[in-house]
Amino acid sequence: MLLKGKVHKYGADVNTDAIIPARYLNVSEPAELAKHCMEGIDKDFVSTVKPGDIIMAITNFGCGSSREHAPLAIKAAGVSCIIAKTFARIFFRNAINIGLPLLECDEAVDKTKAGDILEIELASGKIKNLTGGMVFTAKPYPDFMAELIAAGGLIEYTKSRLVSRRI
């Protein structure tokens, strides 16, 4: 799959309260959540984000609460993928489970500026910075995670596991 979009860049330790403040968690509809996406850190995000855009951050992106509302809001806002050096572990699981791609790549984070246009080939982890004319490669997923992603996320994976258990 080829993804293409503009980079919205943030710092280290972006927490889930910044991604979707807890006061909005009395609903769980992704489209509703998306209206407040990144509100705690970037009030302009919702009005500027375009389908396909990419969120980039430094380290420990998505720290804090376990709310799946965070990756759901980001996905529903139209973001195609998140690139960081590291992710908080619960956020990482949640994003993979709901089919929001995450890529870990130190070099891309160091050399990409806010507003740059990136083109990403998910299967190979190739990140092309079209604005700066650079190419980076993200860390490959561990085999197990790749299997989960290939299955179409955790729910599909679980379905097939249960089927094979019954046979």
Binding site: S66, E68, I90, N97, F144, L154, I155, R161, L162
Partner: peptide, 20 residues
């Protein structure tokens, strides 16, 4: 350990969970 809702959904069906 804490996880997200989808992990919990799958575990409610199977009684187990993947972990690193």
């Amino acid at each position: 350990t804490g996880m997200g809702s989808t992990d919990i959904a799958a575990a409610m069906a199977t009684g187990d969970v993947w972990m690193k």
